[in-house]
């Protein structure tokens, strides 16, 4: 366990260095993209090793405790963001927005207990991996959208406007955020369907309005409403980006709040 935690903390140090480089490069107006991506990828590789060591030691994936859920989601969020960072130059400066969000999660991870708990019998199904995997893509897509939304909001200040000067204009960034939100809507829908199939097999019902189901559905509704609002009222990028923050905030609370404030997040889970 010690090796596993040391590897994880080293990964976090790499992530922090990547984030610090991104913020520093922005403030000092120096291009540090290779360093940023290098640190993020190095951190992600170490994080993969840490998760693999834990999986090997416990014989079960990181799906149950707060520590495991935070760690595996940081891993998947970094992966989605790193791919976007690599493929889309327009996304890169948003690392200064995205990484601090991940820092909050990393801080929370460091404060949570790394102890293990029993793997519930209802988790022994391939649908767990499908459901969780789809959920991770959904949250990752929302994180990238929030990165663009954050850039648009920061540009409202004189300083922020200077930092993100060389990026495309707000409307184009908003278009990019919109596309990630559309992707998020599809993957959120897929996550709900996969979860319903799993629930039917595991607990004999596909939907029971338990806390996680309910809040995941409300997140889907809010996301659908945000996309409709954009079309109906032709929202300004500022308003549109505020909607992205609202959806991400709700999704964040659903992923990391509901399972740990509700005694039974999924009825019959434990």
């Amino acid at each position: 366990m010690e090796t596993e935690l040391r590897t994880l903390w080293t990964a976090i140090v790499c992530y922090v260095l990547g984030g610090a480089w991104a913020i520093g490069g922005l403030v000092l107006k120096k291009r540090a993209e290779r360093w940023v991506l290098g640190f993020i990828v190095a951190g992600w590789l170490l994080h993969t090793v840490a998760l693999g060591l834990r999986w090997e030691r416990l014989g079960q994936g990181p799906f149950v405790t707060l520590f495991e859920i935070l760690s595996s989601n940081i891993w998947s969020l970094v992966l989605v963001f790193a791919i976007s960072y690599w493929r889309l130059p327009a996304v890169r400066p948003s690392a200064a927005v995205v990484m601090p969000i991940l820092f909050v999660m990393m801080g929370w991870l460091m404060l949570s207990s790394p102890g293990e708990v029993h793997f519930p019998r209802s988790f022994r199904t391939p649908w767990l991996y499908i459901h969780v995997g789809l959920g991770k893509v959904f949250l990752g897509a929302m994180l990238v959208a929030v990165g663009q939304a954050g850039v648009i909001q920061l540009r409202r200040t004189a300083r922020g406007s200077g930092w993100f000067q060389r990026l495309p204009d707000d409307r184009r960034l908003d278009e990019l955020a919109y596309r990630y939100m559309a992707l998020a809507l599809i993957f959120n829908g897929l996550m709900l369907v996969a979860g319903a199939i799993w629930a039917q097999d595991a607990w004999g019902r596909y939907w029971a309005w338990d806390p996680l189901e309910t809040w995941a559905f409300i997140t889907w509704l809010l996301l659908a409403a945000a996309l409709h609002l954009r079309v109906t009222y032709r929202l300004t990028p500022r308003l549109s980006s505020a909607m992205a923050f609202a959806v991400f905030g709700l999704a964040f609370l659903t992923f990391f709040g509901v399972p740990f404030v509700s005694s039974r997040p999924h009825q019959g889970t434990f």
């Binding site: 889309l88 130059p89 327009a90 495309p168 184009r172 960034l173 278009e175």
Partner: peptide
Amino acid sequence: QPWQASSA
């Protein structure tokens, strides 16, 4: 991809 044109 409207954001690609001026982002390079």
